[in-house]
């Protein structure tokens, strides 16, 4: 036990099977009868994927539990990564509601705090300057309409 490849491979297998099943819902045209249908290629690819996954599962079972012996990362680091991801997702949502410029600034503050920076001068300057430069380049020079929420 303790081999983490196994649950992953099994999960992937289930996903592949579901996707394979979904291929039966695709539409097909009555006119282009001589052509291969939309489902043809995804099914081939999924079949190959399932075959490879099966080999992986067998390989893992034969290899036994030694794969699980790998050390995980320390909890402190894992927490940083997880919080960084939360910040990133919040940033994605923030662009739509708060606007891109504000979200960028908040994101920088968030990441720097999560990573343990307490030098507020650096945080403040980075959160102020970087977003404004990025915003100016994209919005004013490249004329990209960045999402604006209630703020900017």
């Amino acid at each position: 036990m303790g081999n983490k490849d196994l649950p992953m491979a099994v999960t992937m297998m289930i996903i592949f099977i579901v996707l394979f099943g979904l291929s039966f819902t695709f539409q097909s045209s009555g006119v282009l009868v001589t052509h291969t249908t939309a489902a043809f290629f995804p099914r081939v690819v999924l079949a190959v994927a399932m075959f490879l996954n099966l080999i992986l599962i067998i390989q893992t079972l034969l290899k036994g539990p030694d794969g699980g012996a790998k050390k995980g990362i320390e909890p402190e680091a894992a927490k940083r990564v997880a919080l960084s991801m939360v910040c990133t997702i919040a940033f994605g949502f923030g662009t739509a509601y708060l606007g891109t410029l504000v979200s960028m600034a908040l994101f920088i503050v968030g990441i720097m705090l999560v990573w343990g920076n307490r030098n507020f001068k650096v945080i403040f300057l980075n959160a102020l300057i970087a977003p404004i430069i990025v915003y100016l380049i994209f919005n004013k020079v490249l004329l990209v309409q960045l999402p604006a929420g209630i703020l900017l």
């Binding site: 940033f91 920088i108 990441i111 990025v134 990209v144």
Partner: peptide, 16 residues
Amino acid sequence: YVLSPIILILCVVGTY
């Protein structure tokens, strides 16, 4: 810690 968040905002804005 200064560079990484900037890279990520560039990724987001660039992808958009």
